[in-house]
């Protein structure tokens, strides 16, 4: 099991799962409503500021913000992303 790393540290093209969302509860909730929640699969399609991420089956443009921190756990392969039958 990999340890939690900030989303910024996730390399482009690498797959991960969201481990923890930290910060202002109101803003964390906004992200969750858009599908960024604990356990969601996440992949950095394009890194940078803003970055493009794929969360579940959504493609999102996201600008890192001082009020929320997204922590992710890297997966070994993309196969782990597949939903359990």
């Amino acid at each position: 099991m990999h340890k939690l790393i900030p989303l910024d540290a996730l390399a482009q093209g690498r797959a991960a799962k969201i481990g923890r969302l930290e910060g202002c509860p109101k803003q964390v909730k906004r992200l969750e409503e858009m599908g960024m929640r604990c356990g969601s699969s996440i992949e950095v399609v394009r890194c940078g500021r803003p970055c493009i991420i794929r969360v579940g089956c959504n493609r999102l443009c996201f600008r890192r913000h001082e009020m929320v921190n997204v922590w992710v756990r890297e997966l070994d392969s993309r196969l782990e992303l597949a939903p359990q039958p």
Binding site: C24, Q27, R30, L31, M34, M36, P50, I52, N58, R59, L60, C61, F62, R63, R64, H65, M67, V68
Partner: peptide, 11 residues
């Protein structure tokens, strides 16, 4: 005022 994090869907 506090700016919410910028998040936008790319359909």
């Amino acid at each position: 005022g506090e700016t919410p994090p910028f998040i936008m869907e790319l359909p």
